[in-house]
């Protein structure tokens, strides 16, 4: 009788990816979760169970910062969902129009900011919006709207929205490209069949194209969610670790950075920092699960 042979080649081919992924992703992740359960007392690392989380959620000093950062994160996400994704879809619909000229040029121009570094984007926009050297005040002045200008990045009520819109400017190319690709896969015959039935123009978009690209929109939403709740770079590049003015742009990423590594006279606390990182992980995990089990499994798919 032929015994089933161990198929070594499967192990060999899987090993590099598994080893690298474990070393740089899985191990640090679990170590961070573990670190969140410890604290330093009298120079000794001691196991404190869920104490760090109790401090984070119930100590007014910590919880105020945490909820503020979480709230800001939701606002950041909301702006992206309400501005970035609809604009991305609209741009994709325009670009996929067969009679649009220079489509490739527009596509590249809109996509280019996506490949820029956060630091460049943060710094460039900081300069553009600067009340002292920026071109924003003079451009508004040229059209007689100088009164509308405010030092947006320095005002508590505008700073976060301004940064969210800068981020939208940078990343609007991603939903555009994904939707554009989805729109291209819709066969001509379906649209022609619709035309025969009298569905043309805008109606064709709403009734035929949109239902067909819904799964892509779902994927974009989840990418936006994960990206926004992990965001850090743009805020840090534009406003620094204190996420000013008065913590109005503080998101979980900057809060975690400040706590973990310390800031100015405040010393770093890796254990509280890990607790915040674990909370971020949990929030993202819950969000992704809600999407996967609550929305994606129920989404209607059409055979093209």
């Amino acid at each position: 009788m032929n015994r089933a042979r161990i198929r070594w080649h499967i192990l060999v081919f899987l090993a590099p990816a598994v080893i690298v992924y474990t070393a740089v992703m899985i191990w640090p992740l679990f170590n961070t979760l573990r670190l969140a359960l410890f604290s330093v007392i009298e120079q000794e690392r001691v196991f404190v169970g869920l104490d760090n989380f109790r401090t984070l959620f119930f100590d007014p000093i910590w919880s105020e910062q945490f909820w503020n950062a979480l709230g800001n994160n939701f606002w950041f996400f909301l702006i992206h969902m309400l501005v970035q994704n609809p604009i991305g879809i609209a741009l994709a619909a325009l670009l996929s129009h067969p009679r649009l000229r220079f489509a490739a040029l527009y596509r590249s121009a809109i996509f280019i900011p996506t490949i820029l570094s956060f630091v460049i984007v943060g710094f460039a926009w900081k300069l553009i919006l600067s009340p002292i050297w920026g071109i924003a005040p003079s451009m508004l002045d040229a059209v007689g709207l100088k009164a509308l200008f405010a030092p947006w990045l320095g005002k508590e009520e505008y700073a976060l929205t301004t940064l969210a819109l800068v981020s939208v400017w940078q990343f609007v190319g991603i939903p555009m490209m994904l939707i554009y690709a989805a729109l291209l896969t819709i066969p001509e015959e379906i649209l022609e069949a619709g035309e025969v039935d009298g569905i043309t123009g805008m109606a064709a978009f709403w009734k035929i194209k949109l239902p067909l690209i819904l799964p892509s929109i779902g994927i974009i939403s989840i990418l936006t969610f994960v990206g926004n709740f992990n965001a850090f770079d743009l805020i840090y590049a534009a406003q620094g670790a204190l996420a000013g003015p008065d913590f109005s742009t503080d998101i979980l990423g900057t809060f975690m950075y400040r706590t973990f590594f310390g800031f100015q006279l405040q010393l770093g606390d890796p254990h509280m920092g890990s607790a915040i990182a674990s909370a971020m992980f949990a929030i993202i995990l819950v969000g992704v699960c809600i999407y996967l089990f609550g929305i994606q499994t129920r989404m209607r798919r059409y055979q093209l």
Binding site: S130, P131, P137, A150, G154
Partner: peptide, 16 residues
């Protein structure tokens, strides 16, 4: 302080 001091950074102040 100058107009828009709310968004004026430290290097901005030095340069001004």
């Amino acid at each position: 302080l100058g107009a828009g001091y709310e968004a004026q950074t430290y290097p901005d102040s030095q340069n001004i």
